[in-house]
Computed example of a mutant assay.
Amino acid sequence: MTTPSTANHSPSNPGRHLSLDTLNDKELFLVYRENRDVKIRNELVRRYLFIAEILSRKYINKGIDYEDIYQVASLGLIYAIERFDVDRGYEFSSFATPTIIGEIKKYFRDKGWSIRVPRRIQELSKKINTTKSILQQQLQRTPKIKDIADYLNCSEEEIIEAMEANQVYTPKSLDLTYDNEGEDKDIQFMDLIGETDKMFDFIENRDFILQAMEKLNQVERKVLKDRFFENQTQMQVAMSLNVSQMTVSRMEKKIIEKFKKEFKRTMQ
């Protein structure tokens, strides 16, 4: 497959127009770090897709279709490309492998549960399903909650909690319809579900930012506004403040640390 050429800046020859095929892997990562061009990322994915394929094949015949595993592995490869720092001196394959495997294992762990529930609840849910079959044969009737609780030496509340959580094992379609008694038209499941007001998050985030900004001095507030609201570069901010770019960079890190501390404080 021939990769289309794009206007890239070679790390050793700034401003020179090169085809992606002429760059080695390290140069490609350096260029991608500079401009985040999706064409460059796609080229990196193409070069290293074999890692996702090899790792995916290790999980064949484990209860999940290979194509699904391969898709997850490919996504893990993209995550690895986004996070890789070529300056650290690691081989990308050594960095990408644990990232991809981690994504695959997480997919296996969460597969089947449309909503993440505590592992103890998942395990108890499995025991309940087995116990139902055993008690059905022993009692010659459908076992009650108390029967299951006594058999598993659990409280009835724990059994009910696990049985309710088991309902998220198979997600329901939003197009599922219910008989709307007394009405000509059936009602759809999606009509019964509430919707999160997006303005809540906006207001909450805005209030947090305003509150955190009160902890900043005048210069820090200017750096914050120019960098993250006006989208100015560090060099532009440095020129307006008559300081070095390194000074702006340090201030930026200091501001972020203040925001982190304020966020932790509000979460307590």
Rank of each mutant, 00 (worst) to 15 (best):
V31D: 02
Y32Q: 00
Y32L: 00
R33V: 01
E34M: 10
N35K: 13
N35M: 11
R36V: 09
R36T: 11
D37V: 05
D37Y: 05
D37K: 08
V38N: 14
K39A: 14
I40C: 00
I40F: 01
R41L: 12
R41D: 06
R41P: 03
N42W: 05
L44Q: 01
V45T: 07
V45W: 02
R46I: 03
R46H: 07
R47Y: 03
R47A: 03
Y48G: 09
Y48W: 09
L49H: 14
F50D: 11
F50V: 08
F50T: 09
I51F: 07
E53G: 09
I54R: 15
I54Y: 14
I54K: 14
I54V: 15
L55F: 08
S56R: 05
R57C: 08
R57M: 12
R57T: 08
K58Q: 14
K58L: 11
K58G: 14
K58T: 06
K58P: 06
K58I: 03
K58C: 10
Y59H: 10
I60C: 06
N61M: 11
N61A: 14
N61V: 12
N61K: 15
G63I: 10
G63L: 08
G63F: 09
G63C: 09
I64F: 00
I64L: 06
I64K: 00
D65S: 12
Y66R: 02
E67L: 09
D68C: 11
D68H: 11
I69M: 06
I69E: 02
I69A: 05
Y70Q: 14
Y70A: 15
Y70N: 13
Q71K: 15
A73V: 10
A73S: 12
A73C: 10
A73F: 07
S74Y: 04
L75N: 12
L75W: 11
L75I: 13
L75K: 15
L75T: 14
G76W: 04
G76Q: 07
G76P: 05
L77C: 03
I78S: 06
I78K: 07
I78A: 06
A80P: 05
I81P: 00
I81T: 02
I81Y: 00
E82Y: 04
E82H: 05
R83Q: 14
R83C: 08
R83S: 15
F84C: 09
F84Q: 05
F84V: 11
D85E: 10
D85I: 04
D85Q: 08
D85P: 03
V86L: 02
V86D: 01
D87K: 12
R88W: 04
R88E: 10
G89Y: 00
G89T: 04
F92Y: 05
F92Q: 06
S94I: 04
F95C: 00
F95H: 01
F95K: 00
F95Q: 02
F95V: 00
A96R: 02
A96K: 03
A96P: 01
A96G: 03
T97M: 10
P98C: 07
P98D: 07
T99E: 08
T99W: 05
I100H: 03
I101E: 15
G102T: 09
E103R: 15
E103L: 11
I104M: 10
I104P: 03
I104L: 12
K105Y: 09
K105A: 09
